[in-house]
Amino acid sequence: MTQTAATNPNQLDGTQGAVSDWASDQRAFKNVPWGKAMMWIFLLSDTFIFSCFLISYMTVRSSTKIPWPNTSKVFGLNVNGVEVPLLLIAIMTFILISSSGTMAMAVKYGYERKRKMTTALLLLTALFGATFVAMQAFEWTKLIHEGVRPWGNPFGAPQFGATFFMITGFHGTHVTIGVIFLLIVARKVWRGDYDTGKRGFFTSRKGNYSIVEAMGLYWHFVDLVWVFIFAFFYLW
């Protein structure tokens, strides 16, 4: 919206103008669709959840008197008799970060109305996500076989298993939900729902390509959270 001072007597200059723009009528964030604004605010709230989880993890890790397990050993893989620390987790992290790249490209092609390309990239993102979850399931299985439980483990402080399963489980749930929604959005893009304005099954609202972007915000967030979990859990 372009307003000249002549038509809008409320228009102010300088910093006051900035404040009055931000507080101006109808929309605080101009040209930001509702869904995107809502996703940002949801992610802010979710940030607090993950922060609380990670801070709690740091607290219990520093308050327990039993030594913490040696993470580079516990998370290591034995490849042909060679102990490789952090191998699995490096691959998982690489896959998840790659999925953020494909997601960003999907958003770009979505806005360009290239439906086939968008669908393919969304499906590829979902595939990366599913692979991540599958590898996480593998890691959980391995640790459970080695005797790691939420209430104790053979390597050290019992809080290790408790925080590990809780936080990676909570993050894995996020990724799983993301994969499900990626598939739903991919189907809608494929069918052209965002071009024809077909109404949603539950919400009976018309969608548009900004939904792909909101989906992308969520996906990048889940990715970013993983970086923190990776740093605090595997590298510390």
Binding site: L44, S45, D46, C52, P150, W151, A162
Partner: peptide, 25 residues
């Protein structure tokens, strides 16, 4: 509320695990 309830949520989940699974948060 959107920024404060997360702390309670996390606390509730952790205590639930303490009670049900026998973790020691």
């Amino acid at each position: 509320a959107l920024l404060a309830f997360p702390a309670l949520f996390v606390g509730a989940i952790m205590m639930l695990l303490d009670r049900v699974l026998g973790t020691s948060f």
